[in-house]
Computed example of a mutant assay.
Amino acid sequence: MKTKFEAFPAWAKALTAVALVTGGIFAVVQINKGRERRRLRKEGRELIQDVESDIQATNKPASLTKTNYKLLATKLYNALNLWNIDEMAVYQVFAQMNNDRDVFELIKAFGMPLDSSNFWDADIEKNLSGFMQKLDSDEVAAVNFGLARKGIKYRF
């Protein structure tokens, strides 16, 4: 095999080396993305379990239907999954939350969609908290203030 490889022209040897290095880098990147996806999925499940246990302690009923939560979650995803985030849509969704159960149901309805607004992490799934990190600190503080004003304990 060594003699056959030496028979190739220099450009073919260089091209082969570049292909091997590129393939190795691609494999490492994909492995790291897989690890990140698993970590984020685990965090999302843990978040939902934590919030659910807190909500069950208060035992308040939801004020909206499951369909409404799904529609609000879609509206949030569309507002946060853009290069230019629509803050007003985010504020409008959280203005409809009336108690802790509502926020929990919204988090459940939101799920773990793909974040397609970032070219480098186009196949990373994020929960609602992950998407809310796209907002700056003043915008998150405004959302949290609106929740606190209604007596909702959950914060982003």
Rank of each mutant, 00 (worst) to 15 (best):
F8S: 10
N99W: 14
K70T: 13
D54W: 14
L20E: 06
Q92N: 13
R155A: 09
T65I: 07
K2F: 08
I152N: 03
G151N: 08
E6G: 06
N59C: 03
K60T: 05
G151M: 14
F156K: 07
V93F: 04
L80G: 02
L76G: 07
Q49K: 11
A95C: 01
K33D: 06
N98Y: 06
L82H: 08
N68T: 01
G146K: 09
F8W: 15
R38F: 02
V93Q: 06
M1Q: 06
D50Q: 12
E46K: 05
F119Q: 09
A17D: 10
Q49T: 03
F156W: 15
K42W: 11
F131H: 11
Q30W: 03
S116K: 15
K33L: 10
A95L: 14
I85Q: 04
I55Y: 00
P113D: 03
N32E: 10
I55P: 01
R38I: 01
I31H: 08
D136L: 03
V93Y: 04
S137E: 14
W11D: 10
Y91R: 15
A73V: 11
A12W: 15
S117M: 05
K33V: 08
F119I: 05
A14D: 10
L147M: 10
M112C: 05
D136E: 07
N118W: 02
G151K: 11
W11F: 14
V18G: 00
N144P: 05
L40V: 00
P61R: 14
M132N: 02
N32R: 15
R101N: 10
P61K: 12
L106W: 02
A10L: 14
V28D: 01
P9A: 14
L76Q: 05
A141C: 02
R101H: 10
N144W: 10
F131C: 02
Q92E: 15
M132D: 00
A14S: 14
I25E: 04
E87R: 13
A95I: 00
K75D: 11
R41W: 06
D102G: 03
E139Q: 15
Y77T: 00
T16Q: 12
